[in-house]
Each structure stands twice: as structure tokens, then as C-alpha cells.
Amino acid sequence: MDKAAVTTVQDLVQPTIRATNVNIYYDDTHAIKDVNLDIPPKAVTALIGPSGCGKSTFLRSINRMNDTIPSCRMTGQITLYGDDIYDKKIDVVQLRARVGMVFQKPNPFPKSIYDNVAYGPRIHGLANSDADLDNIVFNSLQKSGLWDEVKDRLDTPGTALSGGQRQRLCIARTIAINPEVILMDEPCSALDPIATAIIEELITELKERFTIVIVTHSMQQAARVSQKTAFFHLGKILEFGDTSEIFTNPKVEKTKDYITGRYG
């Protein structure tokens, strides 16, 4: 573990998320080994690495999605603005309202577009009135760039949209609960290049308001959208730093090999 790389970023800003000595196991498999990472606010942090390196597992531990997998165990500490999110006092439901998540496969609920977006605010009681709810839906759809495409058919099922639109709907759904952090697990891997470009543009806009952590196996995407990049390999972070730095001047040999396409 290259401690030097971590300390340099720590000095810049107060991190939104700080992971300290995180280890994650599935039954006997040691998936994440001693990961330390600071994620800065209002920026996009990309987690890259070859498949099976644990980047998705780590991402899912940030909003405790791994809790739904019975065989998964974790040690170490992850804090969100200084609160230990694995603390007994922290409520996982509340946590997930603060740390939203967008998944690899667009997974709108089999409900209308409106109800998809309104789902989160409804369960968290974010709206005081129907008008509030309408407002949230409108805002979220607009921020996700979907408004103009769906404004005339808010009552059609969300599953009827195209792949790219579905993913933006899922992003709108996440924005609607006004989280502090948005986790994105390879959000474009199921999309065509045009839809991908739209989402990437959206991510760039969203980072003005949200802290974004994105897992991607496309290095170009990481280079395009992120400000920070962490390179995962076999469950460890080999290198972490400014994206421009990592892509132009990687310090670790493995990173260089990966970025230049020696393996993947």
C-alpha cells in the first residue's frame, strides 16, 4: 500500500468518506484487503481495476448494500462526514437515504415513471404535500436530463423506456431523495456509446451538487468524468490520486500496465 499517495490528498480537503483498514470477506474469500481511502466532496472519484479486483464490493460497502448478502463480513471503519457508518447507532435505512446508489443494470421499478421517482421521497416522507412531491419529481427528472423526453408520459411504466433513459430514470430516482453521496456501479456498462455520453455529461453536472463515487472498467470513462482515481488490484488499492496524474504518470508499475492495456 502506497501510504504516500493517500496522505497527499488528505491535506487538500476534508474528505466526505474515509475508509480505514477496510477488510471484506465472502465466506472464506478475502475480497478487500486493508483498504484506506479518502473520498473528497463534490467531486467524482473513480474506482478502476481489472474485473474481480473488489472495486464493486468496496463501493457496495459504502452504503452497506453488502448487508443484504448473508455470507459477507467486514472489518475496519468507513466514516461519512466523521460518522462511522458501521456503528450500531447508525441506521442503515437512514444511511442509504444519505448515500444513494445507481446500479450496473438499469433497474426501474415496474411502476410509472412518476412513481419510480416519487418512491424514495414517499418512503422517507420528504414531501409535505402532493405539490411538494410533484416538485421533487420535476426537479429530479430535470436534473437527470430526462424531463423533456418524458414530460408527456409520466404515467407510462418506467420499464418502457430505452436503456439510456432507464438509467437516467434510476439516477433521477436517486437524486430525488437528495443524498449527499451517489454511488455508481458501472452505470454505463449496459448502454450504447450515445447513451453513455449523455450519462457522462450528466455525471459531470451532478458533481456540482453531489459527491460521486463511480466504479468503471472503462479507463477512458474514468479519465473523462473523474477528478480522483483509485486503482484496485486483487482487493488492494495500489494507487490513488488525481486522475490526470494517474493516467499520465502512474507511479506503480501495475497501474501503468493496466492503463496501457497490458492486462485487464
Binding site: K111, S112, Y114, D115, A118, Y119, P121, R122, I123, G125, L126, A127, N128, D130, A131, D132, L133, D134, N135, I136, V137, F138, N139, Q142, K151, L154, D155, N178
Partner: peptide
């Protein structure tokens, strides 16, 4: 909040300021 679909959406037209949750 009651989770029944609300079909008479009172969606504002044009651009509106960011919604700040209560």
C-alpha cells in the same frame, strides 16, 4: 405518506428553482 399513484400531477412549467426539501 400514502403510496398510491398520484395521477393529477401539478407539474410547474418552465424552469423552477431547486427544490429544497422541507
Amino acid at each position: 405518506t400514502d403510496i398510491t399513484p398520484n395521477n393529477s400531477h401539478n407539474i410547474p412549467s418552465g424552469t423552477v428553482p431547486d427544490f429544497i426539501p422541507p
